[in-house]
Amino acid sequence: MIWRHVASNFLTLALVLMVAAAIAVAWGKRQFSGPGPSATAQCVQVAQGASLNAVSNRLAEQGAISSAYIFRAGVDYQGRAGQLKFGSYMVPPGASMEDIADAITAGGPSTCGTEVIFRVGVRANSVVLRDINPETGAYEERVKYDPAKEEAPEAILAAEQQPDARLRIAVAEGVTSWQIVEGLKEADFMAGEVGEVPAEGSLAPDTYEVKPGADRAALLAEMGTRQAAILAAEWEARPFGLPYASPEEALIMASIVEKETGIPDERETVASVFVNRLEEGMRLQTDPTVIYGVTGGQGILDRGLRQSELNRATPYNTYQIDGLPPTPIANPGKAAIHAALNPAETEFVFFVADGSGGHAFARTLEEHNANVARWREIEASQPATQPENGG
């Protein structure tokens, strides 16, 4: 009887323990997949080579999860303990432990944290330090400086040394290859020498994430590969009947479109003007090509064109030559390449600034002269004039 009683008690205890364990597992699963404790967006960071234990403890400390133990148990149960990906990831308010586990094991580009951006611009370069604001989920600029004129601030130098900081090179549309090469030389977190300046137009304006000590020549090669792929895809999909003998000619036109307008909605219309001129045997007569002939793409022309420069016969003076210049005059972005190969269907052959940052287009010289007269009135009323652009 005693042993029967002991066995009964043992079975009862085992059953209670099993029920308790089942309840605990169910509760743990709800905690793992249920809403998290954070009321704001969180920047979740995984250091290079960090263990699941270290990551879970950090997440608990910053209030992204309610229990480091449950997080570890859940990730381990899913078989993802060894799949942590280095980086910084933004997770929304109330993100569950499972959501966070998905983010830090899926990997991909970092989406938050500190970043240092070296911007290669048309008129000047700049270096910017930005941090994510968890309240808004948006990056906010902390420090900015001109590397050609100023010493790097301590905050930027310190950020460049952070193992989880993102380093980026941002190349603006319309910069020349010489400007890109000179800009990369100023980027002190990069290394390596650059030989010849890549062909004009052959580099894709974009943002590139790099590692500390990244090779400049390798980055230029990546830019070239990306631009070649963009041009090839757009050329393959082009409509019939465009007046280009080769993809290179389309790239030349794209560079002209890029330099003539910064208004996205105008690109196809501007492209149509120059396509119409080519088809009608008219000269392109565009100032940016003449400017490129003066500067050689090395810097900008901080003044208006002189009459002597407009009258001088050079390969880039489209007031004096027929057809396209021999090379692109800058590195056009994807949108400008698309516009050059997909121009709007118009009868426009003239355009001029309209005072709003855009342009007024015309079919006839009479219409164009009227637009020019309106622009002259606007220009005379303004203390600082805008570049005229157009032709």
Rank of each mutant, 00 (worst) to 15 (best):
L305T: 04
P328Y: 11
Q285M: 14
R303M: 09
V273L: 11
Q285F: 06
K334W: 00
N276Q: 12
Y292G: 01
T327L: 05
V294I: 14
Q285H: 06
P288E: 05
Y292E: 00
G296Y: 04
N276V: 11
L278N: 13
V273G: 12
N331E: 09
I291N: 01
T286P: 02
R303G: 09
I337T: 05
G297T: 03
T318E: 03
P326E: 12
Q285P: 04
Y316H: 02
I329C: 08
E280W: 08
L310R: 11
A336F: 08
A335I: 04
G293A: 12
T286W: 01
P315Q: 10
I300S: 14
Q320C: 06
G281L: 13
E279I: 14
L301Y: 03
L310M: 13
D287K: 01
D287G: 07
N311P: 02
G333Y: 04
I337W: 02
E280F: 07
P326S: 13
P326F: 14
A335H: 01
I321G: 09
G299R: 06
D287A: 05
G304M: 09
T289C: 11
I300C: 03
N331Y: 03
G297A: 04
P326V: 12
P325L: 11
R267Y: 10
D302Y: 05
T269F: 06
M282W: 06
L284D: 06
I337Y: 06
I291C: 02
N331R: 03
A336V: 09
Q307P: 03
F274N: 01
N276F: 11
Q298V: 12
P315D: 12
Y316F: 15
P325D: 05
R267F: 06
N331H: 10
T286L: 02
G281K: 13
T327S: 09
A313I: 11
P288D: 10
R283K: 15
E309T: 04
G304R: 14
D287S: 11
V273Y: 10
I291V: 15
T314W: 05
G299H: 05
I300Q: 15
T318V: 12
T318D: 02
D287W: 02
R312D: 12
K334F: 00
I291G: 00
I321A: 02
V270K: 00
P328N: 12
T318A: 00
S272A: 14
K334R: 15
G333H: 04
T289S: 15
T327V: 12
I329D: 03
G296R: 10
G323A: 01
A330T: 06
E309P: 01
L324T: 05
G333A: 10
L305M: 10
D302M: 10
I337M: 13
I321R: 01
A313H: 13
